[in-house]
Design a protein around this nucleic acid. Structure first.
Length: 242
DNA sequence: GCGACAG
DNA sequence: ATCTTGTCGC
């Protein structure tokens, strides 16, 4: 699906191109931020939703990205890929995309099908400069993305209703940048924010629509399992009762 | 200056 | 994120 991407760097961008100096990375984020859209621009019918997660091996020397493409509303895995590349950047709060996207893009390039929507672990616009990893990926692909974070990067919010589906807005510097959503009763809420080409309302709708019996939406949960799995580990069966 | 800080 | 043992619960 390379030909469908609108790159800000070339398709085969060398890894070192992502290893920017923190100052340059921040400057790039500020420039890209103006291109982000929160206007819904999804296919009429969304059939394939991708979940993306990243893990590390070899004490952090190897970055492993996992992508799982699921059909909705069946939630059956259509395709899944794992990419491993040398880690190029250290973890710096606010610059996560520069560290993890190279591996994510490698995994996406291995795909045979083109997802209609991408759910990325981490923030979308709920970021100091509105450029979380989900947003950066959305801009790179020029496709709808949603940020699904397990914890907060920035912003403030009120108490989150205890029932499944309950949520409250996440604010930062006077603007609503996302929602803190209770995806499961008595379980720590998720930080949902638009990545690109999608609104907050629609983002919440899709996350809720992809929930089964767990805290994480199914595409993300499946990607999580793949990303955290060791190279040759065996897949465990699970009773599929909904 | 001090504290916070996705994964 | 990763390291790392046991433990509570369905």
């Amino acid at each position: 699906m390379f030909e469908l991407m609108a790159h800000f760097l070339l398709p085969n961008t060398p890894l070192h191109e992502w290893a920017l100096d923190p100052r340059d990375a921040v400057a790039l984020q500020k420039r890209l931020a103006s291109r982000v859209s929160q206007t819904d621009d999804l296919p009429e019918t969304v059939t394939l939703v991708a979940g993306i997660d990243v893990g590390f091996e070899e004490g952090g020397d190897i970055t492993r990205a996992a992508i799982v493409v699921m059909s909705v509303p069946e939630f059956s895995i259509v395709e899944h890929r794992i990419a491993r590349i040398p880690t190029q950047m250290p973890y710096v709060p606010g610059l996560l995309s520069f560290r993890e996207l190279p591996a994510v893009l490698e995994a996406i390039s291995m795909l045979e099908r083109t997802p209609d929507l991408f759910m990325v672990d981490g923030q979308g616009i709920a970021h100091p400069r509105r450029m979380g990893i989900a947003t950066h990926l959305g801009l790179w692909l020029e496709r709808p993305t949603i940020g699904v974070g397990k914890s907060r990067l920035c912003g403030q919010h009120e108490a989150v209703p205890d029932h499944k589906g309950g949520w409250t807005e996440l604010h930062h510097r006077g603007e609503c940048i996302g929602a803190v959503l209770r995806t499961r009763e008595r379980v720590k809420p998720l930080y949902i924010s638009p990545g690109h080409r999608i609104s907050l309302e629609t983002s919440i709708k899709w996350v809720m629509g992809c929930l089964t019996r767990y805290k994480l939406p199914e595409p993300t949960r499946q990607a999580d399992k793949l990303a955290s799995r060791k190279p040759g580990a065996t897949v465990a069966l699970e009773p599929h009762i909904l």
